[in-house]
């Protein structure tokens, strides 16, 4: 059993680690070493020029900043909206809960590409096209259904006795939510925040359709510009920029993961 687990772990590490290793190795290769028929696992002399070229590329830092704050704000709004919504959906009985959960579930059936054209037309009409606020609303909308389901699971795990105790003590529904539910579902909120942040950070569709024009571009659209026509491209700087673009999400995950685990333990309750 232990051997099987070790084999599984090794396979898992290779499966997910190899592409990442290849990306880092490519970012350190010279252009001439990339794409050739000779397999170079790792360059004998790592070349850091791709990193300076990636950072020096026009618009990339502005795009990185746009991605960072758009992802942070969108993730924050998603987290704030999700918690009470999930509480309401988890606690409600009857038609409202069924209708809401059914609607949220059915909204996931349609690919987001399907909604882009109508949304684009609406956005142009109401003046939200090419605005950061418009993009944030979309990011939140696209993140919300999955996050709601995610958070609903955490809320459902909160023992009803605790909620009852709060109400017996005279707390209103909002107070129960604020002082009882929120602290207990903090691990869920962290998961929602991480998910929403990464999802927004990696989103290409919203950025490319709704944020046109150089100064509003995000990192994903900037990264795509390293690839040219007919398979040509600046693959070294592209790999370097991609490696750099992973750092914020990685840092966020490392920082919040500790908090997540700590809260998961401290939030545990006996019913």
């Amino acid at each position: 059993m232990k051997t099987l687990r070790v084999i599984g772990t090794i396979f898992f590490t290779i499966f997910f680690g190899l592409p990442l290793f290849w990306l880092v190795a490519t970012s350190l290769k010279q252009e001439i070493q990339i794409g050739g028929s000779d397999l170079i696992w790792f360059p004998a002399k790592p070349d850091w020029a791709n990193y300076s070229e990636a950072v020096g590329r026009s618009g990339i830092l502005v795009a990185a900043w746009n991605s960072l704050w758009l992802s942070t704000v969108s993730a924050f709004v998603t987290t704030v909206v999700t918690a009470p919504a999930a509480y309401l959906v988890a606690q409600s009985r009857g038609w409202f809960s069924k209708a809401t959960t059914g609607w949220v579930l059915s909204s996931q059936v349609f690919p987001s590409l399907l909604t882009v054209f109508p949304l684009f037309l609406i956005y142009v009409k109401i003046g939200l096209f090419n605005s950061f606020i418009g993009a944030i609303i979309l990011y939140v909308i696209f993140n919300l259904p999955f996050c709601l389901w995610l958070q609903r699971g955490f809320v459902k795990n909160v023992p009803s006795e605790i909620l009852e105790a709060g109400r017996i003590d005279g707390a209103s529904g909002l107070k129960v939510l604020r002082y009882v539910v929120f602290p207990l579902i903090l691990p869920g909120s962290i998961v929602v925040f991480i998910y929403a942040f990464i999802n927004t950070w990696n989103n290409f569709l919203v950025a490319t359709v709704f944020l046109q024009g150089g100064e509003k571009q995000t990192l994903t659209t900037q990264l795509a510009r390293f690839i040219g026509t007919e398979g040509l491209g600046l693959f070294g700087p592209f790999a370097a920029a991609t490696v750099l673009s992973v750092i914020p999400t990685l840092l966020l995950f490392i920082v919040l993961q500790r908090k997540f685990t700590a809260n998961l333990v401290s939030g545990a309750v006996k019913s």
Partner: peptide, 23 residues
């Protein structure tokens, strides 16, 4: 003139949506 740089796929997405909405 304002220069707007896009990737190849982005160009056609933006043109298709842009022509549809007049942008």
């Amino acid at each position: 003139v304002k220069l707007e740089l896009v990737d190849e796929a982005g160009l056609y997405t933006q043109l298709s949506t842009g022509f549809l909405a007049g942008t």
